[in-house]
């Protein structure tokens, strides 16, 4: 059996090869990244709102959130939130009456919450900058028309803010997909790097399988970069560029 053929077997679908594990891993990585990103976006909107609210205690909460998250290494935050987060989140949900005492927070859900908490701090900063970039006069005009807050947000602020924020938000998306690999340290979900670890450990072909893992991540990054390019172009349609 030649080397090429054995690699083909190793990367085949089914019981003898590892391709299926990697593809499921890729999907799980996507699930973690999308979930974490959405949680982060929600936290980012809240954070940016708090920072721009002008109320002293809200500004302080927002500031400490972004400062702490950006100063502590992601892996430590992930471990801390993963270990403490499950019990805290459960207490909050049960306390609010949204869930019963028998609630079990799954490991992937905890990992998503942790990734989202980290991404939220970075998204807060991006959104804060983007909101400030929307001309104030437009919001005042909307207010003069008698639009309520949510309508102003939906029609004036959000669409324009998104345009200013795309580049930053795109970078954070790329970071979240890469940070999701840290979940392999927790062993919380069968994502890409966990698939790579399992395959490498079982076959002792560490170099080969970690290269394959890197290749899958690269595929994800390059696809995202192409998608972001077109998204940015679409959001900027009708906007003239200086150069």
């Amino acid at each position: 059996m030649g080397a090429d053929q054995s690699y083909a077997v190793l990367m085949s679908w089914g019981d003898r090869g590892w391709l299926d594990e990697f593809v499921w891993g890729l999907l799980f990585t996507l699930e973690l990244a999308i979930g974490g990103y959405l949680v982060g976006f929600a936290l980012g909107l809240l954070g940016a709102g708090a920072k721009l609210s002008g109320r002293k205690w809200l500004v302080r909460v927002g500031d400490s959130y972004t400062t702490i998250v950006r100063a502590v290494p992601e892996l430590i935050l992930l471990l801390l939130i993963y270990y403490t987060g499950t019990s805290t989140l459960k207490a909050v949900l049960v306390g609010l009456g949204l869930a019963g005492e028998d609630l079990e927070i799954s490991a992937p859900a905890a990992a998503i919450a942790a990734l989202g908490f980290i991404a939220g701090a970075y998204i807060t900063e991006v959104l804060r900058g983007a909101i400030l970039a929307v001309p104030k006069g437009q919001l005042e005009a909307a207010r003069a028309y008698g639009m309520p807050f949510l309508l102003r947000f939906r029609r004036i602020l959000f669409p324009q803010m998104l345009r200013y924020a795309t580049a930053g938000l795109g970078n954070i998306w790329l970071n979240v997909t890469k940070e999701s690999a840290l979940v392999a340290v927790l062993g919380a979900a069968p994502e890409l790097l966990t698939a790579g670890k399992t395959a490498a450990g079982a076959t002792k072909m560490f170099f080969f399988f970690y290269s394959v893992t890197a290749g899958f991540f690269l595929l994800l990054t390059v696809t995202s970069m192409i998608g972001l390019y077109f998204l940015e172009r679409r959001l900027n349609r009708g906007v003239r560029r200086a150069v």
């Binding site: 170099f207 970690y210 890197a214």
Partner: peptide
């Protein structure tokens, strides 16, 4: 384009 953790594993174990 690839996570630093994957690079660590690739370099150290591979």
């Amino acid at each position: 384009g690839t996570p630093l953790l994957v690079q660590f594993f690739l370099i150290y174990y591979g």
